[in-house]
Design a protein around this nucleic acid. Structure first.
Length: 681
DNA sequence: AGCACGCCGACT
DNA sequence: GTCGGCGTGCTC
């Protein structure tokens, strides 16, 4: 870098009058919506996308050339010269377009999105001593072509035909075991023949090893993985090779959308319906939707794969924005095993000892284990009990920083807040009244189910699979191995277990609380519950062994459970679609959520109310709220929220943009905008 | 985001 | 008397 700086210094001295030297605007990877202007020696040709080093305040930063030859909007006396050019790096026009698109869609500052793209700032500073270069060999299209079935061949042919169209989106709708992965891997071959890059997006990175393995079997090389727990060196190397186009196959979670691809040829969004694609922290976005946008800007194909496509995607298929191809199950067996309902209302009428695992489910469990098979008990709730209170004074244990209960975790011996991570050791005495050993635990979590199993069936070997117990991919692999070796009879799992892993000897799935998730502030509650339960149910049996699924519920007549029972997805979708249309909800309208937060209670409330009073007056635009957010306090910050709804025909972003220009927001109140909100909490 | 500046409380 | 809290404002 010193020599680069020197060269700029020399060049600018050759043309001493600053006015003669052009001005460029530089976008910095900081949360600003505007660029900053710098001078550049006339003889240094800069073009947008180039990476330059500049002095910014006291700091030295790398930024990207945004535009050249403009008239500065501050007095020339304030302008500094750029310090140098970072050779060998540049963001392509497609990457810059994507950056702009994401910024305006999510209403986040350009610089914030740039920071996401320049997620490995170290790549721009040369290493002190050269690291051994990892090799990124090209995938071999003819390494190990699979034998495909007629319907797969047809699907591949369709996908190939899409490549000539430039931008296109196709939904690959196929049940588990119908060979979706083989189909899309085969379609990717076309990209490798053209030396293009491909991106496979996954909702969570724990699914990557399996896909990577299948990829390697097919193309003879391992793909480049991108996720948050890579080491510095790995990130550095992968980022560089993705930027240079050397790395051709990338498998990653949400954040891999923001990598600086050199020539992307196709994007696959696997499990497109998965709610994990929605990023809720920082810049709020739906990775599936951004993938479609990126495909549009790159003029390439996007493939969405799912066994239970989202309503949004189905809506786009119906309105012919997306193509749709379907794969039927290869084995001719039902898509998910027979599902039976256990009506807890009837059972609780009888005054038996209260267990979380009902008598019928317990019986089936015993039979399954006796038959030498394995079972899964599903409860999407971490810890021992979601709520603990003092039996003596009635105090409920609450997080001091959030309006949420503290969850008892036996594993850690702590009460933990699931929203901010705050935790306290489990003590014997109640802080409020001094009573000893007076805790009353309300409701079950996976740990409590494990305890009940140990008590009632001490001979069964059980394991919990939740994020508290399984902390990384290695731990998961170890547990999976134990299950495969039949060292485990019963798995007690949260949603972590719903995806990816298939255990051939697992024939029974018991769902402790099928109603969990059906209530609460989420417009997609029904859809999400349907998808989650469908996915969990799919863990039971497959191929030769028939599976059984038992759903414990207090609401057996709920449409979600009825359609799961009948296996009639079409009817469920139709009903759900109709109810969304009737309620003027997405995908029939657009929705945005505005979240006001501040440490000052009165300031948030006042700001939110002032904001609401200045709402655009149009009969098309509906504003709900403001009201204290369902989780009114998180991490010690007060939160109010507001919902905005507009017709699909207008840009909800511009409505909000205009609106915000009219209202002054005090600096101590932050506004977060969630376009297409999923969770209302 | 970082960093400086600035204005009020408890300490060597 | 100063050290340091974090509120406010600025960076081409």
């Amino acid at each position: 870098m010193p020599e680069q700086k020197q060269s700029v210094d020399e060049l600018k001295n050759q043309s001493p009058q600053a006015e003669k030297n052009p001005c460029v605007s530089i976008l910095l990877p900081l949360p600003f919506k505007d660029t900053y202007d710098y001078l550049v020696p006339a003889s240094l040709p800069l073009i947008p996308g180039m990476i330059v080093t500049v002095e910014f305040g006291q700091r030295h930063l790398n930024g990207v050339v945004w535009s050249v030859g403009k008239t500065p909007d501050v007095p020339v006396s304030k302008l500094k010269y750029i310090s140098g050019i970072v050779e060998g790096f540049s963001l392509s026009p497609e990457n810059l377009e994507f950056l702009k698109w994401v910024s305006s869609y999510t209403m986040s500052p350009l610089g914030t999105i740039l920071k996401m793209m320049m997620s490995v700032p170290e790549v721009f500073t040369p290493l002190k001593r050269p690291a051994p270069q990892r090799i990124f060999p090209a995938p071999d299209p003819s390494f190990n072509p699979p034998l495909l079935e007629p319907q797969q061949i047809e699907a591949v042919a369709f996908l190939k035909s899409q490549f000539s169209r430039g931008y296109s989106v196709t939904l690959l709708d196929g049940v588990t075991g119908s060979g979706k992965t083989e189909v899309y891997l085969e379609a990717l071959k076309e990209c490798f023949l053209k030396k293009q890059q491909i991106l496979i997006l996954l909702p969570q990175i724990s699914l990557a090893p399996q896909i990577a393995q299948r990829f390697e079997r097919r193309f003879g090389v391992s793909p480049t993985l991108w996720h948050s727990s890579l080491t510095k060196a790995q990130r550095r190397e992968s980022w560089k090779q993705i930027h240079s186009g050397q790395a051709q196959a990338i498998i990653g979670a949400r954040s891999s959308l923001f990598l600086p691809y050199a020539n992307l040829g196709m994007i696959v969004v696997d499990e497109e319906h998965d709610p994990a694609y929605k990023q809720e922290e920082g810049v709020i976005y739906q990775a599936r939707d951004l993938a479609v946008a990126r495909a549009y800007l790159e003029k390439i194909s996007c493939l969405l794969a799912s066994a239970t496509p989202s309503l949004e995607t189905l809506y786009n298929c119906e309105s012919e924005k997306y193509q749709r191809i379907q794969l039927k199950s290869r084995y001719g067996v039902a898509e998910i095993p027979a599902i039976q309902i256990i009506d807890l209302r009837q059972l609780s009428a009888r005054k038996e000892k209260k267990y979380w695992i009902s008598a019928p489910l317990a019986t089936h469990l015993k039979e399954t284990i006796a038959a030498g098979e394995q079972a899964l008990i599903y409860l999407n709730r971490r810890g021992y009990a979601p709520l603990t209170l003092c039996g003596s004074c009635g105090t409920k244990l609450q997080c001091p920083y959030c309006s949420a209960w503290l969850v008892n975790h036996l594993k850690h011996g702590k009460f933990i807040c699931h929203h901010c991570g705050h935790n306290v050791s489990v003590s014997k005495t109640c802080q409020e009244c001094g009573a000893e050993e007076s805790w009353v635990c309300c409701g079950p979590g996976v740990e409590r189910i494990a305890e009940e199993l140990a008590e009632r069936f001490p001979s069964f070997r059980t394991t919990i699979i939740s994020s508290d117990i399984i902390e990384d991919a290695d731990a998961m692999a170890q547990i999976a191995e134990k299950i495969h070796n039949h060292d485990i009879d019963i798995i007690i799992g949260t949603q972590m277990i719903a995806k990816g892993h298939h255990f051939p000897n697992l024939t029974l799935v018991g769902i402790i609380d099928a109603d969990l998730g059906l209530s609460g502030g989420d417009l997609r509650a029904s859809e999400k519950t349907y998808q989650a339960l469908h996915q969990v149910a799919g863990r039971a049996g497959r191929e030769e062994k028939t599976g059984h699924v038992y759903l414990q519920t207090y609401a057996p007549e709920h449409p979600v459970l009825m359609s799961l029972l009948s296996g009639d997805r079409e009817t469920f979708i139709a009903q759900e679609m109709e109810s969304r249309e009737r309620g003027d909800m997405p995908p029939f309208t657009r929705l945005a959520s505005l979240i006001f937060s501040s440490r000052h209670r009165e300031a948030v409330e006042l700001t939110a109310q002032t904001f609401a009073r200045n709402a655009p007056r149009s009969q098309d635009i509906l504003v709900l709220g403001p009201s204290p957010a369902p989780l009114a306090v998180v991490r010690g910050k007060y939160r109010w929220r507001m919902l905005v709804q507009t017709p699909r025909t207008i840009s909800i972003q511009s409505v909000i943009h205009q609106w915000m220009k009219q209202v002054k927001i005090p600096t101590n109140v932050k506004v977060k905008i969630d376009i297409d909100p999923y969770s209302f909490l």
